[in-house]
Design a protein around this nucleic acid. Structure first.
Lengths: 158, 158
DNA sequence: AGACGTTAGTTGTTATCACAGATGTCGTCA
DNA sequence: TGACGACATCTGTGATAACAACTAACGTCT
């Protein structure tokens, strides 16, 4: 009898509401990110690279220390900003310069070429976002954003 | 004047509501995932590995073809299930066997050792989830889960 | 000035991921 | 039965991520 009962699969896929929310957040995030990645690859860049471009464009003029770039990354705190920035420098999108008044700090700035690339992506990315969520009302989107922020910012950790 | 205006940073951090939702989903997902990863590393496994254990435990008895395991993965469709499963087989958590009646298919099953590990993780993971979201009401969590599912499933793609 | 702790970034190493092409197996249809 | 397309997995390769140890520069305190 136990065995028969078990064989009814997926009747209760979630063990708890909390777990359901957790999985929904991850799945939805992964799906949305994939849409972005699909757009980006047409332009030959990866998500972390695009993320850095956005951050550095927002940090103009003046640029940002490498560490702060890492902190502002969306997906992770990126323990490896150095090499990511070095790669992007080789591609000509970013310029790195050790700060004179504090030689520990390396300031990263977006280049003209990087700015052009970022600008070229604005339209496609915005359209992708609109397509993604155009079936939701303003009100629903606001609720969603608010709840997510609350879930994240006030969440309890060990 | 333009320059002065621009220097007021982060006044309008989002370009659109859609983009705000996008970023909130990703950031919240990354934060929650990090909490899980922190639990998992105490037990010496990674998120994809844990994901596979959960999938295969749910697929007992009988196991699942490698390809289907990949499809059920949360974060990505994992184009590299083969090697992930091989590694887990070496660790003794998973058993792989080519199906006799269709030699193209490799069925993966969780082992006793894998089951014990998964079981040992149940408590810590459940507690982590509760901690993460205990500040939200049932009603809020339900709304959140519903909205996320709607955002993902009905979203428009190219 | 010099010792010391801190900060910011760099480097080494290993594991994993993504992509693409290759391999072995199967079902079907002439 | 034998050719062929489809399917499921495997393998090769290069890029990237995670983790940890290391170096250089700075601030401060004596």
């Amino acid at each position: 009898m136990r065995l028969l009962g078990r064989s009814i699969k997926q009747r209760k896929p979630f063990e708890s509401l909390e777990q359901e929310v957790f999985l929904e957040v991850l799945r939805t995030g992964a799906a949305m990110m994939q849409d972005l990645v699909d757009v980006l690859r047409r332009f030959g860049l990866t998500q972390p690279q695009y993320n850095v471009l956005r951050i550095l464009r927002g940090a103009e003029p003046g640029g940002l220390p490498s560490g702060e770039v890492g902190e502002r990354m969306v997906v992770s705190r990126e323990p490896d900003v150095t090499r990511l920035l070095v790669r992007m420098e080789k591609l000509g999108w970013v310029q790195r310069q050790r700060r004179a008044d504090n030689r520990r700090v390396v300031t990263a700035r977006i280049t003209e070429k990087g700015l052009r690339l970022a600008k070229a992506l604005d339209g496609p990315v915005r359209r992708m976002h609109n397509r993604q969520l155009h079936h939701m009302s303003r009100r629903e989107l606001n609720t969603l954003a608010t709840l997510l922020e609350r879930a994240r910012r006030e969440r309890g950790r060990p």
